[in-house]
Design a protein around this nucleic acid. Structure first.
Lengths: 223, 223
DNA sequence: CGCGCCATTTGGTCAAGCCAATTTGCAGAT
DNA sequence: ATCTGCAAATTGGCTTGACCAAATGGCGCG
């Protein structure tokens, strides 16, 4: 099929492929504009438009009078989850990160958010009473707190870290964690966190969150 | 002071100002390329480069044969806790997260890590002296600190947040940040952070990191 | 051997023109 | 009077060619 996109987009992709293919490693200098344009069969202005697109997304750096250089080979792509990371590493990370985030959340806590949090605790108690795993409620509780900061990046990070626990890689270790006792303990800790948020006490909330996640990690492992 | 940035960046900013000033509302059509180029006193190819930058960051939409249209004016406003602007959101997130992480790092700081950190500062000074953008050194500094915790998740998060700055969305704001003065200020702040780490002082390190990233965000935005 | 000047290389910008997609408007048909 | 269809005008897409400015590298002079 013919590519109907603008030429600079097609050209930018072709240059990306050159880099991805390994023809030009990070730090390497690409051919001069005139030469590269001829090599790719496009005019120099069109190539320049492509280079600007690549410069903007951080693929290359253009130095006047010197040349065009390949920037970080950093692959932000996808999972990256080769994870030699242990569950304890994960829970430690959550403890540190979410404790920091809840400090921000406590400062701007609204009644509306508190209502949503109370709802998750109610649903969580209900799940436990019916011997269902309240994973979704647990997830919602942590996510709502992160979202309440108004910063979507916080929500994203918390979400990713939480879901990490339920990834296939972590699945093997799970199992004993799912006891009613464990979930009841988690519920109680959630209540403690909520109480600190209702009091708009950032430090108490931070302490409660940290305590919750370290305890949760312990429960997860000691079985 | 004369603006030494590339013409397309200056031009893109001037077009942004036209839109921000209200001369062209969302959905409105900008003057034709030929006319707009003459109006701004630049050649058509240079204007086209600027338009591509604006197209990438979602400021405008270019329709072949039709015209150039202003896109989302989507400014949050409203109930006070809706989404902040991406760049400020990003730097706020970095300030909170990396401040929390460096507390962990300070506790287990090794001489080997300190050596690596000092190396990045030296290379950074070298880059600045040679009017190169020390982005890689900046990145390395923050990444080394996160990695020194031994928790790969911290490193991943810091890496992703850092690279976020060079995403297309952030591209439009970049450029102002690239002055030698800004980088020198950043370098000084890095030195302050390093000093706190050498003293194994978690709280001082936390304060220095938070100060650095909020100042960095300010430099990035204030233009 | 070191230093500084100058030609070369390379990116930065401009000018003019032609092509292709879209829009517009007028003319003819209904 | 209105609708339809085609052609001209408008507008972005792309190329060629040229010249300017910054960075680099090599050569010759001290």
């Amino acid at each position: 099929m013919t590519d109907t996109r603008r030429l600079y987009q097609q050209t930018a992709d072709r240059v990306r492929q050159l880099i991805a293919k390994g023809d030009y490693q990070a730090g390497a200098r690409l051919p001069a504009e005139r030469e590269l344009a001829q090599q790719l069969g496009v005019s120099r202005p069109s190539l320049r438009e492509a280079l600007i697109a690549l410069e903007i997304d951080g693929t290359i750096e253009i130095r006047m009078g010197s040349g065009i250089y390949v920037l970080n080979t950093a692959k932000p792509a996808g999972n990256g989850r080769s994870l030699g990371e242990s569950p304890s590493e994960l829970m430690k990370a959550r403890a540190v990160i979410e404790s920091a985030i809840i400090v921000q959340a406590a400062a701007t806590m609204t009644e509306k958010t508190l209502v949503m949090l109370r709802a998750t605790l109610g649903a969580m108690a209900d799940d436990i009473a019916n011997t269902r795993k309240p994973i979704e409620q647990d997830r919602a509780f942590h996510l709502i707190i992160a979202e309440s900061t108004g910063n979507t990046l916080f929500a994203e990070i918390v979400e990713n870290l939480f879901d990490e626990r339920h990834s296939p890689l972590s699945a093997g270790i799970r199992g004993h964690f799912e006891t009613a006792d464990s979930w009841t303990a988690a519920l109680n800790e959630h209540h403690a966190i909520l109480a600190a948020l209702e009091a708009r006490d950032p430090l108490a909330a931070q302490a409660a969150m940290h305590s919750h996640l370290t305890a949760s990690g312990r429960r997860w492992l000691e079985n």
